[in-house]
Design a protein around this nucleic acid. Structure first.
Length: 385
DNA sequence: GTTGAGCGTT
């Protein structure tokens, strides 16, 4: 029996699927392993192009009559996300949805508040410091060609997309918002912040910054005052933050515990009645957030001393308002020489300006970019007591 | 030639 090597995406580890006696591969065989898939493609070594596999009446045909499926590793084709919605049976669309969630595909992102002068080239140039830009477009008035002040951008990697959503953007001299289209949320889709428990009083923010910088760029450190035995460290890269969660680390001889900077209420009782869906109605964020985790309550010893409760408000506003204490305290961002890129971190402005002009503006209408300073963060006060 | 919350002629 002939086997066909298939992976979900190019580069993934393949699974061997049995072909039929006539050399074809049944679509049902494929879909048994890759729910929601509708076809196969492969990389043609000669042309370097991706080739589609012929598909007809539930069967997939090998590229060559002589050598059959050959030594290629095939990867799956999935339906376009918004196609054939009504035709999809429930099973299929569920599988598809699940796949989108787990595969974390990039989506177009809307860029709001662009200067009128920004062009598609300068937009692309700005975002290329985050990663490969597959598309950058400015919406313009058809007649005049004048920019409407917003556009769309799409990245080649989810990592880049996450970083873009987690940061603020000074584009051509104006602060812009980047969001998942039609989502109401502010950019914070993925937490870059971790909770550091079991801190002692002599561990200061410099200690934390210095220690955690070896894992990745630290954009913010926050230690609640008065002392409450925990702190928050924010990384530029959410993956770095997530990779540390659940770990114990020794700082100045003290074993501290790193966990998700998630509200306590989410992790213990009372799962109903409160909405922590800060991912703005799309599937992003939950991937790295691990809401089912119980990191807070896993802290051994000294029970109750640093228990965090989160009453009232939602995680979104909490993220917004905690995302940038010491916002003026971040350094340059790795991999970026773009002077327009202010670096990560601050969702809270360091001064008291409220306007959105080109000198000191913040994105218009973005309530998340409050002017609270770290020393008087009302959310901290009201929710971390 | 002006403007500043929004959501894309595919």
């Amino acid at each position: 029996m002939d086997f066909v090597q298939v992976s979900e995406e190019e580069g993934d580890e393949p699974i061997e699927l049995p072909a039929e006696e006539d050399g074809t591969l049944l679509l049902s065989t494929l879909q048994a392993q890759f729910p929601g898939s509708c076809g196969l493609k492969y990389r043609n070594m000669d042309t370097k192009a991706v080739r589609g596999v012929r598909s007809n009446e539930g069967r997939l045909f090998p590229p060559s009559v002589d050598s059959g499926w050959g030594e290629y590793i095939y990867f799956c084709v999935f339906p376009k996300e918004n196609k054939r919605k009504s035709d999809d049976n429930l099973e299929n669309s569920t599988a598809k949805t699940k796949r989108i969630e787990t595969r974390l595909r990039c989506t177009d992102l809307i860029v709001l508040g662009l200067p009128w002068k920004t062009t598609e080239d300068s937009l692309r140039e700005y975002f290329e410091s985050y990663g490969e830009v597959l598309m950058a477009q400015i919406k313009k008035d058809v007649k005049s060609g004048q920019s409407k002040g917003f556009g769309f951008v799409r990245f080649g990697s989810y990592d880049a997309q996450m970083r873009v959503l987690s940061n603020r953007h000074l584009i051509d001299g104006r602060w812009c918002e980047v969001k998942v289209p039609n989502s109401k949320g502010v950019g914070h889709q993925v937490p870059c912040k971790v909770f550091v428990g079991r801190c002692t009083e002599d561990i200061n923010s410099d200690d934390l910054r210095e220690y955690f910088s070896k894992f990745g760029e630290v954009t913010d450190v926050f230690i609640p005052r008065p002392f409450r035995a925990f702190s928050f460290v924010t990384f530029f890269d959410p993956d770095v933050a997530q990779s540390l969660c659940g770990e114990d680390h020794i700082i100045k001889g003290v074993s501290v515990h790193v966990s998700n900077a998630a509200p306590k209420a989410e992790q213990s009782r009372s799962h109903q009645g409160q909405n922590y869906n800060y991912s703005s109605g799309n599937s992003y964020g939950m991937h790295s957030y691990h809401p089912q985790g119980n990191h807070m309550s896993s802290h051994p010893g000294r029970s109750g001393q640093h228990r965090v409760t989160f009453q009232g408000g939602n995680f979104l506003s909490w993220m917004s308002q905690n995302g940038g204490h010491n916002a003026n305290n971040y350094g340059g961002r790795k991999g970026s020489n773009n002077p327009n890129n202010p670096g990560p971190g601050g969702m809270i402005k360091a001064d008291n300006s409220t306007c959105n002009d080109q000198q000191n503006g913040c994105a218009p209408g973005n309530a998340g970019w409050s002017n609270q300073s770290s020393s008087q963060n009302s959310v901290e006060k009201s929710n971390f007591l």
